[in-house]
């Protein structure tokens, strides 16, 4: 009997000891979040379980009862929508990263550091993420509009369903150029392959990526600890090294 009580006590207390937090992460943040999570587990008593997916799919899963406690979205729209729908802990939403758009080619010397290659227009395809679905796609269209080039270049669009597929179109050489995220071609603080033009932030709306605690994580101390850690200087150093801003 005593043993059984002990067993029950052990069973109920174990979540409080380890209390892993379930974090759903936008696929484009995979690289930095893995490092941040490893550091977080080293520096705090908490543990993290990461699930990756496109923000739109994560949204649908959350709305249908997925066990996620925190969402790191690839946009600001989805967390705000979940907040409106009463799926989040109010006051927990904040911008953890601001993405940078980059014009990139896997070939050195194709993209100049002013992006004039867009005006020259001597390419067959420009890969962009679907502007209807992906924030980076919308930013790409805004940029071309601001440059007054949308009309001439739009017929050359090839659209990836998400930013990872867009990268694949360019990296495989099927599209000569692509408007993708800096984090996809940046390693340890610099663009190591091909040629790139980092699009000035003034040419498009900021690509804010917001995080929010979901209802399921309301009483989990690890969820709050995780959000605090995301704002820490250690986490931000990692985020910055992958080409994001704040």
């Amino acid at each position: 009997m005593k043993f059984r009580i002990l067993l029950i006590a052990l069973f109920f207390s174990s979540p409080a000891l380890a209390d892993p937090v379930q974090v759903a992460v936008a696929a484009n943040f995979t690289g930095p979040v893995k490092i941040i999570a490893a550091n977080f587990e080293k520096e705090t008593p908490h543990q993290v379980n990461l699930s990756f997916g496109a923000t739109g799919k994560l949204y649908a899963q959350i709305r249908n009862g997925a066990p996620f406690e925190v969402l790191l979205a690839a946009d600001a729209k989805t967390p705000a929508k979940l907040e409106q729908e009463g799926e989040t802990v109010s006051g927990s939403r904040f911008t953890y990263a601001i993405g940078k758009l980059v014009l990139w080619s896997p070939k050195p010397g194709t993209v100049d550091d002013q992006g004039k290659v867009l005006e020259k227009n001597d390419f067959a395809h420009l890969a962009v993420a679907d502007p209807k679905l992906a924030p980076y796609g919308a930013a790409a269209v805004e940029t071309l509009t601001a440059l007054g080039l949308l009309q001439t270049i739009q017929p050359k669009f090839v659209q990836g369903e998400n930013i990872a597929q867009t990268y694949q179109f360019v990296a495989s050489g099927n599209a000569e150029l692509g408007l993708i995220t800096l984090s996809q071609v940046m390693k340890e603080g610099k663009v190591t392959e091909g040629s790139a033009w980092i699009v000035p932030a003034a040419l498009h709306q900021p690509i804010r990526q917001d995080a929010v605690i979901l209802n399921k994580g309301k009483d989990n101390a690890a969820a709050r600890a995780w959000m605090d850690y995301l704002k820490s200087e250690q986490a931000r150093m990692v985020i910055r090294s992958f080409g994001y801003d704040f």
């Binding site: 395809h125 890969a127 679907d130 669009f157 090839v158 659209q159 990836g160 369903e161 597929q165 179109f169 099927n174 599209a175």
Partner: peptide, 8 residues
């Protein structure tokens, strides 16, 4: 098609 079409 999704992988190689480019959604044009």
């Amino acid at each position: 098609v999704l992988m190689m079409g480019g959604n044009i």
